[in-house]
């Protein structure tokens, strides 16, 4: 996504996660005994790699300009039901790694593209459930 896309937000790091928070016009303290969370979960560390959270992808995914894969409903059902999907190499994907999956132009979440063109489903359980039941 363009480098300036998130300029209006601050990135806060706590609880081993990064959160995106609208620039606060006032201070609040993490040390406040009442404090639970601020902002939207943004990135988390998965096996040494930073993975964008599903909620971040669903809100800001439309700004992504690479590593985006548009799949049909049928392909997404296959991905969820089998846990993986073989895809032919696509121009829009530069390298293996996490890719953003879109359906009908809307960002759904991330999956992991392997060197051998296998796409591994990395959707949260609740999202998988929709395509399993469908």
């Amino acid at each position: 996504m363009p480098a300036t896309s998130l300029d209006s937000w601050q990135i806060l790091t706590y609880s081993k996660q990064a959160f995106l928070f609208r620039t606060p016009p006032e201070r609040f303290s993490y040390a406040d005994p009442h404090f639970v969370r601020a902002g939207l979960p943004f990135l988390r560390n998965v096996a040494g790699f930073l993975k964008p959270t599903t909620c971040f992808v669903q809100r800001f995914g439309h700004l992504a300009n690479r590593s985006v894969l548009d799949l049909s409903l049928h392909e997404i059902k296959q991905l969820v039901q089998r846990g993986e999907l073989n895809i032919e190499s696509r121009q829009e994907i530069e390298a293996p790694g996490y890719v953003m999956i879109r359906i009908f132009g809307n960002s759904l979440g991330c999956s992991l593209l392997m060197d051998d063109n296998r796409l591994l489903c990395r959707f949260p359980k609740a999202l998988k459930q929709i395509f399993r039941n469908d």
Partner: peptide, 21 residues
């Protein structure tokens, strides 16, 4: 609070501070 955070996450809200008191 857990259902509150879950809904704010699903709705993609970045401007909320959740506190328990």
């Amino acid at each position: 609070i857990i259902s509150l955070m879950s809904n704010l996450k699903r709705l993609g809200i970045t401007s909320a501070v959740v506190i328990q008191s």
